[in-house]
Simulated scan of single mutants.
Amino acid sequence: MSSVPPHGPPNVEAIKPPDLILTGTLDREATHRLCEEAGELLRSADADAPGVLVCDVADLGPPVLAAIDALARLQLTARRAGGRIRLRNPAPDLRELLHLVGLPMEIEMGRRTEQREPPRRVQEAVEARDPPLA
């Protein structure tokens, strides 16, 4: 039994663009607006698949309790609409504060380019005193 392999590179997932981008510091008004927007996005999602709301928090201000409150309210709004939220690129301080307050969040780290050392020079010439290869 044989099958035709799929076209394209194997195991490549497209990165979904974020649904919400959280920037700066969040106050009550911004939190309320974000929750309304999140609810609308999840209600308009496909009814067959559970909605996942991707929130990019890379440019979120310092991790303070107001930010934790906003994320908790967003998560509650998503659950009430039958979905969930996923945080993209949270700062280490924010991840630690979420852990400390006991707020479980799904976290997604964005792909970063790999940093490598520059290639080393390969010895191309053979030294006269090198033994011959067998």
Rank of each mutant, 00 (worst) to 15 (best):
A134E: 08
A47T: 09
T77S: 12
R73G: 05
L76G: 01
P10Y: 05
L26S: 04
A134S: 10
R86G: 04
D19C: 13
L42R: 03
H7T: 11
A91I: 00
I21H: 00
P10D: 04
D27G: 03
D69Y: 03
E36A: 13
L71T: 01
A128Y: 07
M105K: 02
G82A: 08
P118E: 14
L103R: 02
A45N: 10
A38D: 05
E117W: 09
L74D: 01
C35D: 10
I15G: 00
P50V: 13
G82I: 02
I85D: 04
A49P: 03
R88E: 09
G39T: 09
A30P: 02
A91Q: 04
L103C: 06
I68S: 03
E13S: 08
P50C: 12
E106W: 11
G82D: 06
N11L: 15
D46E: 15
Q123A: 13
A38H: 07
L98E: 07
L53C: 07
G82Y: 10
H7Y: 07
E96R: 15
H99M: 04
P132E: 15
L71H: 03
I68R: 05
P18Y: 14
L97W: 01
P92M: 07
H7K: 13
T77Y: 13
P10V: 02
G110S: 15
P119W: 14
P90T: 05
L53A: 08
A58N: 02
R43S: 03
G24S: 13
G39H: 08
Q75G: 08
I68H: 06
R112K: 14
G110I: 03
I21W: 02
V122T: 14
V64I: 11
V4M: 01
P50N: 12
A134Y: 03
E96K: 11
L22F: 13
D69M: 10
S44N: 13
R79T: 05
L87C: 09
R80F: 13
E106F: 06
K16P: 00
C55Q: 02
E127Y: 09
E40A: 13
D46A: 14
E37H: 08
G83S: 07
A81V: 09
A134K: 02
L97E: 01
Q75W: 02
G83F: 07
V64W: 00
A30D: 12
E96G: 00
Q115I: 15
T25V: 07
G24V: 10
L71A: 08
A58Y: 00
E108G: 05
P9C: 01
R129I: 12
Q123I: 04
D69G: 01
G39L: 09
E114T: 09
G8E: 14
G83I: 07
A45R: 15
I21V: 15
V122N: 12
L22E: 05
S2N: 06
P92N: 12
D27H: 09
R80I: 11
L65Q: 03
R84K: 11
L74R: 05
T77D: 04
R79Y: 07
H7P: 10
V4H: 11
R129E: 15
A125N: 02
R111G: 05
L34Q: 03
E106T: 14
P118F: 09
V57L: 03
R86F: 06
L60W: 07
R28N: 09
R95I: 04
C55G: 04
N11V: 06
P118G: 10
Q115L: 15
T77F: 13
A58W: 03
P118T: 05
A70Y: 06
A49W: 13
T113D: 08
D59R: 14
